[in-house]
Nucleic acid binder design. Structure first.
Length: 557
RNA sequence: GCGCUUGUAGCUCAACUGGAUAGAGCGCAGCCCUGCGGAGGCUGAGGUCGUGGGUUCAAAUCCCACCAAGCGCGCCA
């Protein structure tokens, strides 16, 4: 367990103990105590942590909250970590950490190195996170990029929080869209070989399909023309699909996103899982035949309408396979928690998915669906829709290439998932002070630069005495570093990784301010060593934070 | 029409999930280099938290109504 979380827990327990003792001593009426929590006050003068318990007890005890606070505080045990416990109107109890304990945490961070910030909350529980999962019928676009960054960052954080995380991409490799893609590709293939033919009406008209057809001609020639149409479509299509998938993987890798598992939709049919799950639903009475189709009776579970699982032509819908897929996640593979990240256009799918998970006998709370809102691409305030080069929707790969990975990741991450966002490529590219990406990385580069100087001067600081750190800006820096475990805990609870970007900026700001106020390498050998320790620990925390966001920590810029 | 999400400083967004005087960045007005990287630091101005009710000791946060925007409401995925 992280030191700071242990201290926090200790404070909570001491409040509980003090309140109970106050009650036993007759200083406080014996009313039931609510769940005690402490929070971080927004003003530094209010200390490091605060409890509003007295305010919550005011009504039940019909006492002045300030007096309740005083009674509780008088029973508060002393501890090494806490320097001061005070009472503030209208009825808060404020706690201030001792500087001795604070400075010791510098050594603690140095010991823990890269594992600093990690917590044990997850206890090795298995959690699966599925994200992007775009149809392999075309290149990824910017919206997928947002989901990719969201998912991979969340996976990093959950891993740091002690969960066993598995990242997965669901490949929709069967169904209507695939058939349509196969047909489109075959038409383009024929056209490229001089055959006058038409594209299917519901086809994929992007120029990338033609590019794909040309690549396949280069590699395989015109052999598919000699086959019966159906065979040609299928064989050529499969090759095209593989290529498309490869391009998708490349785009994701360029964004520093990788997966533990690429799960094929069609495997659900091949291994009989689909049939099994449908039979289960039928047996429990959630399946009905009407209008010559097969329906999942979601209205029985409070939904507004039923949903088709098998069309009247006998083919299963996307929803049907998704049911089997989630059965596979929860039952076959036994994940404790499953996180799905979907785009806003899938929002209507959420409630029926939760309903069907419940119908399969799985607690729907174990399924967490994150909807990431739409993202619009801009360039200097102007809306960008099409790529100048291909005329298609601008691809994720193009955006990454133009803007750079670090900036892409940061900007995709910095808004909460449920707020729509504009992604301005000009702004993201601008390597100036109005770009927080460089501001944060610059803090790290400054740290690296300090160590280059220290090394040049041959300074060793292993025996530095951190208790010399007493300046306000030094202690503020330590306090900021101590927040990382709490941030990780919060994100693991809320599944909102955008908080990391704000934390990173705040940590960088506090470091820059410290840097201005306290010169590190000076003639004062002892102070130099102590500050080198402080700076080293700041480097660890900054590196860890950037790492969680999938960003690089450059030694030089 | 129904459902989900959003509405906070001139702009883009936070607000530890109900707490203290609502905070950052950009922009704006100023100030700071005989020192480790000025891609920096420090001040300041700027708010009826969409509107109106309600719950609470306490509401940007919870509930209701309304207004506005995005997405969805297919035997598409």
């Amino acid at each position: 367990m992280s030191e700071i979380l242990a201290v926090k827990q200790g404070i909570i327990e001491s409040i509980k103990k003090a309140a109970t003792e106050a009650q036993q001593a007759g200083k406080l009426p014996s009313v039931p105590l609510p769940d005690i929590s402490i929070e971080r006050p927004q003003k530094a003068e209010h200390g490091d942590y605060a409890s509003s318990l007295p305010l919550k007890l005011a009504r039940a005890t019909s006492l002045n909250p300030l007096n309740i606070a005083k009674s509780i505080v008088s029973f508060m045990p002393k501890s090494e970590e806490i320097a001061e416990v005070s009472v503030a109107p209208p009825g808060f109890i404020n706690f201030r950490l001792s500087t001795g304990w604070l400075t010791k945490q510098v050594d603690n961070i140095l010991e823990q190195q890269k594992s600093y910030g990690n917590i044990t909350k997850g206890n090795g529980k298995q959690i699966q996170i599925e994200f992007v999962s775009a149809n392999p019928t075309g290149p990824l676009h910017i919206g997928h990029g947002r989901g990719a960054v969201l998912g991979s960052t969340l996976a990093n954080v959950l891993d740091a929080a002690g969960f066993k995380v598995q990242k997965e991409y669901y490949i929709n490799d069967s169904g209507n869209q695939i058939v349509s893609f196969y047909r489109s590709l075959y038409s383009r293939y024929q056209q490229c070989l001089g055959i006058d033919t038409e594209m299917p009406a519901e086809g994929y008209f992007g120029s990338y399909v033609t590019d794909l057809a040309r690549e396949l001609i280069d590699e395989h020639g015109d052999q598919f023309l000699k086959m019966p149409r159906e065979e040609a479509e299928s064989k050529l299509g499969k090759l095209g699909l593989e290529k498309m998938l490869l391009k998708i993987k490349e785009s994701l890798e360029a964004l520093r996103v990788n997966y533990d598992c690429w799960f094929s939709e069609s495997s659900l049919y091949e291994n009989g899982q689909y049939d099994k799950v449908m039979a289960m639903l039928k047996q429990s009475g959630y399946i009905a035949e009407k209008e010559s189709a097969t329906w999942f009776v979601s209205t029985a579970l409070g939904e507004h309408k039923d949903n088709v699982v098998v069309r009247s032509d006998g083919t299963p819908t996307y929803f049907a396979t998704d049911i089997a897929y989630h059965y596979n996640k929860f039952i076959t593979r036994g994940f404790d928690t499953v996180i799905d990240i979907w785009g806003a256009d899938h929002q209507g799918h959420v409630s029926r998915m939760e309903a069907v998970v419940g119908a399969l006998g799985i607690d729907p709370k174990r399924l967490k669906v994150i909807i990431s809102q739409m993202i619009t691409l801009k360039r200097g305030g102007e809306l960008v829709k099409l790529s100048k080069r291909s005329g298609d929707m601008i691809s994720l790969a193009e955006v990454i290439e133009e803007v750079g990975v670090d900036a892409c990741r940061f900007f995709f991450l910095c808004r909460s998932a449920d707020s729509q966002m504009d992604f301005d490529m000009e702004l993201a590219k601008k390597e100036s002070q109005d770009n927080p990406v460089y501001y944060i990385q610059y803090a790290y580069a400054r740290i690296a630069s300090i160590f280059r100087l220290a090394e040049e001067k041959g300074i060793k600081y292993d025996d530095g005495d951190v208790s010399l750190l007493k300046e306000e800006s030094e202690l503020t820096l330590i306090r900021s570093m101590l927040q990382l475990p709490e941030i990780i805990e919060m994100i693991a609870n809320t599944l909102e990784p955008h908080h990391l970007t704000y934390y990173a900026q705040e940590l960088a700001t506090i470091f820059h301010s410290f840097y201005k106020q306290c010169r590190v390498v000076t003639d004062d050998v002892d102070m130099t060593k102590a500050r080198l320790k402080l700076v080293a620990s700041a480097g660890i925390v900054l590196d860890k934070t950037l790492g969680l966001m999938g960003m690089s920590a450059p030694e030089k810029m």
